[in-house]
Design a protein around this nucleic acid. Structure first.
Length: 272
DNA sequence: ACTGGATCCTGACTGC
DNA sequence: TGCAGTCAGGATCCAG
């Protein structure tokens, strides 16, 4: 999926088309996502006005007066705004939100790991959101926080960083990149890293995410933002997907190993 | 409480 | 060209 930068890029791309607009109808062609999409969604949303679109971790929150539409893009999901005349749906175009003014917000997700859920009440209290860690780009995320939370934890620092209960939005690509920037070996135990190194890591996480957002996300396969434009961050990756290629810092060959079922890339010389 | 592993699903790619 | 095997941006759930 889209990690945090791709979700944020999507949010920014679709916001101008959704804010203050009414939903004319909802068309569900394939309800079998991670959880079944409610067949009542059309009845619930028809005629309702969108207040705004927010983001919590990798969840998009479409806020309406009487509730919130929670959207997760899973590993292969994307959202695009289509202008009239709207193209016929392609394979895996599972849901359309028909908007005032003939535009359509279209959800595409080949692997169907994503989610499209209607929530009433405060979304922050929903089980999917209630236990989430802090936003990496917000207050409350820094080296001290990571240091304190990691004491006694024996998992690898990479797994620790990718745990949404620790911090949201850091997926496999950016965990690899941030650990490289911080000079920390991805397999090192989380509980055995000093506070000063966690300060570097928190800083690296912010830098890598902000850099990716600034460039419109990372294009992998057919990722496109809300306007259908590709992201360019892939050009800036230091270690992810660069097995055998020279480390940008020292020239040593980048190594690839498997850690907790996820491909892990690092420089054996720069990362300890 | 923490940890690792299995799991949902389709498509792209590799090697035979 | 076909086929089997592997891997992919996530995160929940379960057993130990």
């Amino acid at each position: 999926m889209p990690e945090l930068p791709e979700v944020e890029t999507t949010r920014r791309g679709i916001l101008p088309y959704l804010r203050g607009r009414r939903i004319r109808a909802v068309e569900i062609r394939e309800p079998r996502l991670r959880w079944p999409v409610s067949p009542d969604l059309d009845a619930i949303l028809r005629g309702e006005q969108v207040d705004t679109v927010e983001r919590r971790g990798k969840y998009l929150l479409v806020r309406l007066g009487k509730g919130t539409l929670l959207i997760h893009l899973g590993m292969s999901g994307s959202l695009r705004v289509l202008a009239a005349p709207v193209a016929l749906p392609r394979k895996h175009d599972h849901i359309d939100l028909l908007l005032e003014g003939e535009q359509v917000l279209r959800y595409h997700d080949p692997r169907r790991f994503g989610a499209f859920l209607w929530l009433e009440g405060d979304p922050a209290e929903h089980p999917l959101l209630a236990e989430l860690g802090p936003e990496p780009l917000g207050a409350g995320f820094d080296g001290d926080y990571l240091f304190r939370l990691s004491r006694g934890r024996r998992v690898s620092v990479k797994q620790f960083l990718m745990d949404g209960h620790v911090v949201v939005g850091v997926g496999n690509i950016y965990a690899n990149e941030a650990l490289y920037l911080a000079g920390i070996h991805p397999r090192r135990q989380a509980g055995r890293i000093a506070a000063t190194r966690y300060a570097r890591l928190a800083d690296a996480v912010r830098r890598v995410l902000e850099g990716a957002i600034a460039q419109g996300g990372t294009t992998l396969r057919d990722y496109v933002n809300g306007n259908g434009a590709p992201g360019y961050f892939a050009l800036s990756l230091s270690v992810y997907g660069r097995t055998g290629q020279p480390c940008p810092g020292c020239g040593e060959a980048i190594r690839q190993v498997r850690n907790a079922q996820r491909s892990t890339f690092y420089c054996p010389r720069c990362q300890r």
